[in-house]
Amino acid sequence: HVDKDKMSLPEARVGTWGGFVFINFDADAEPLETYLENLPEHFASFNLEDRYVAAHVAKIMPCNWKLAMEAFVEAYHVPFAHGQVLSYYGDSNTQYDVWPGVRHVSRMISVQGVASPSKPATTPEQTIEEMRRDVPFFAGKPIEVHEGETARGKLAERAREKISRSIGRDMSGLSDSESLDLIEYMLFPNMVPWGGQALPITYRFRPNGDDPESSIMEIMFLFSKAPDGSHPEPAKMTMLGLDQKWADAPELGSAAMVADQDTDNLKRIQKGLRASKKPGVTLARYQESRIRHYHETLDAYMAR
């Protein structure tokens, strides 16, 4: 009397892109291929599927998962939260991209190798010295800036050399932006993959059960495989608790300091959401345009 078709296990829709597996419990959802919109085209030369997980750290964050993500998709806050990077990070010069008709994807390109507009007196030598201090990738022989050269150009030159050696391929044709800059995309609702070759990072944000006061953030380093496809064993995920710091995961290197500074701010911002008399949040017209775009898409889905 049992109808096997009615008694089979429930199925989920599954799709793959860039080495990631996407799972959707809605049998009527649109295909992943159209949901990704312009993302595959933009990542065609970045080859995420040819990388391996070199580091994977997750942490329980002291805020809602949407708030955590908002803190990592704009550079407007950098002069106030990350003072150590102002000599080599052009925060307010960040380019933000939201495309007409594109619902699920946005991008920012944050320039490195130039000083923040808030620190205009920075010399090229200071830019190079402080970037080498914070980013071990630029260690090694001194980097000298001669007449007619720029700190950004010399840093990009060093980056191309290092990237070529680390992945065993000639990357001398990389642009300065692909070699140095933070080319960060967001795929609605919770994935933040980075393009380029400079910082092969992917963030992921998700709820921590049903608790709206905390969330789980993940940081993954995705390094390129060798030309023959070989690579070290993929890293196992390190899980950090609410009272631990990102710095407790040494595999994150200098990225941990920046993430800890953001986490400290998020504690206060979460409280501020509960304390504000003014309804809603005021977003900067351009610098926070990705956050605005995200919430417009979220509102459209929720309105259904």
Rank of each mutant, 00 (worst) to 15 (best):
K245Y: 08
E213F: 05
K267W: 03
L240R: 05
P279E: 05
P189S: 05
G195A: 13
M171W: 02
L283S: 08
P212C: 05
H231D: 01
G253K: 06
A249R: 03
F221M: 07
P250T: 07
M220A: 12
E178Y: 04
P232C: 11
G196P: 00
M186Y: 01
S215T: 06
V192K: 00
P212Y: 08
G209I: 03
F223Q: 07
P250A: 09
T263P: 06
S230V: 09
L174Y: 06
Y203D: 04
Q287A: 15
Y286A: 06
G195K: 09
Y185M: 08
K271G: 08
A255V: 14
P200D: 05
V258K: 00
E233T: 15
V258I: 15
A226M: 09
A247T: 15
M171K: 14
L182Y: 13
K278G: 04
T282V: 15
E233G: 05
D248G: 09
S254N: 11
E288P: 00
Y286Q: 01
A249W: 07
Q197V: 07
Q287S: 13
P250S: 06
P232Q: 10
L242T: 07
P193W: 01
H231C: 14
D170A: 08
D264A: 15
A249E: 04
R268L: 13
M239T: 14
L266V: 03
Q261L: 15
D262M: 10
M191C: 10
R274D: 13
A198Q: 07
P189A: 05
G173N: 12
I291M: 04
L242S: 04
W246N: 03
M191A: 10
S177P: 03
I219G: 03
V258L: 12
L199F: 13
